[in-house]
Design a protein around this nucleic acid. Structure first.
Lengths: 150, 150
DNA sequence: GTCTCTGCAAACGATTTGCACTAGT
DNA sequence: ACTAGTGCAAATCGTTTGCAGAGAC
């Protein structure tokens, strides 16, 4: 369940993914990938761009957008459409869900394997074929709960 | 589970909600509320605006936005932040979840009371206090599955 | 050299905001 | 008359796109 950060295994993975998809593993793509792997939060495209600029000052924001879109298609990242305005990105591909603090907007990963295995209600069959399930819990994180007491 | 549509009980409800919140139940607000109650789908602000124009040709789109934001604060509607770009609105306040077709973007309501009652994993307690849970199922609706066969 | 990828700037689309007018109490 | 609510238009903000140059094989 632990985030691994960026390592040699990661570089092999992104290399083979790109090769398989028939796209180049460019400097920018690699660096964006690294940034994602090292992120412990759920960064937005702009977050990634800002963090990246320390190392590659010339990188453009739209390159980040394009790369993240590519990563999304390749299944490297998952786009999160939460109650914020901006989309967030998640590299954690093990099946998991999210807790969103309605006050500070912080997003935390939730693991709930029992739920992942739970049989969906029968009515769903009448609607379509489910490929993924994503649970979004809303509430207040402990930090915000503390602050509310003050 | 059935959508009720707009009726006298609804008008009493919106009237008392507005009174309690100390805001006026204006013509526009009432009509937007009616439109929401009669909607069987999950309309966007623009959808509401278009539908409304048949009855109130002068209503402005931003009034719809403002009213929907107000309704959201008052708990009359729930904003849906799905993988579409535009936010959708949902008047159905009985606890329910959503199935989103990744192809046609259609949104269907899912009821799963057993899940609503299920105890959340313990790790969540360490993160914060959960006030609501929303499950988003993704996949292909039966209509799109049919079309894919062709 | 070809062809993808990138950077730049402009475009875009949903939503928000400032302001003056309107309408209900 | 006072004040919330509205319509209009302009602004905003995240994201996308067209195009020409850059870089990889």
């Amino acid at each position: 369940m632990e985030r691994q950060g960026f390592n040699n295994k990661s570089i092999d993975r992104i290399r083979s993914i790109c090769e398989e998809a028939g796209i180049k593993l460019t400097h920018q793509r690699l660096e964006i990938f690294k940034e994602l792997m090292n992120a412990t939060d759920h960064p937005s495209a702009e977050d990634i761009h800002v963090r990246l600029q320390k190392r590659i000052p010339t990188v453009a924001l739209d390159t980040v957008y394009r790369t993240l879109a590519t990563f999304d298609e390749l299944g490297i990242t998952r786009k999160l459409h939460l109650a914020n305005k901006r989309n967030l990105f998640d590299v954690n591909l093990t099946q998991h869900h999210h807790f969103v603090c309605d006050r500070c907007r912080k997003v935390e990963d939730i693991y709930w394997p029992d739920f992942d295995k739970a049989t969906l209600p029968e009515t769903v069959v009448g609607i379509g074929k489910v490929r993924s399930r994503h649970l979004e819990l809303h509430g207040l994180c402990n930090t915000c709960l503390e602050q509310n007491k003050e």
